[in-house]
Amino acid sequence: MMVQEKAQDNSYKRFLAMDVGITIVTYEGICSHEVVVQLGQELEHLLAASTGVRFKKVFGVFIELIQNIKNYSAETVLAQNGTECGVGIIRVSEESLCYTVTAGNCIRKDDVERIEAKCAAVKHIPTAELRSYFNDRIRLKQESTSKGAGVGFLDIAIKAGGNWEYEFHPVNDDFTFFTITAYIAKAKIVEEDAKNS
């Protein structure tokens, strides 16, 4: 489903105008499996040496968000490999104390309520309890419509130490632009400070 609308252009413009520090990677377009793997490798190349084990959190959030676009964006195109893949935008950037991963894609207006409820439910969980919720959730039978494990937002919240947010911007009568932003502290101590403040 293509969403070629002026309003959607504005969604991407708004996304790119967000102040999230120095950009490391920005990608807009089809998120096929090949793109996921290629961009993941580039990110590893650009970040792994400087961030060590914290890199895994940035990488993990990036993979989860880009696979979300691939599997759940309402705007899709047929990839070279013959599979229908989601279209969206993703950016990894760096600020003084954290890395930021932001992803945006169109969703159907009918799905807004369901996704918003899901996000709000995860947001409501105290940071210290996120892991036990995650462990409980993966033990539940997989949701039938889900291509993943249905625990993506929880995983992002864990890796971001609870520092994440989401937004919905209506595009037109049928579509809404959905963005998730996760902030991954560069050092563990910063994450704990952020939690306490």
């Binding site: 993990g60 993966i138 291509k147 993943g148 494990a149 995983d155």
Partner: peptide, 10 residues
Amino acid sequence: LNYFNTSSAK
């Protein structure tokens, strides 16, 4: 394992 995504966690 170095890293796995949520589907792999399941």
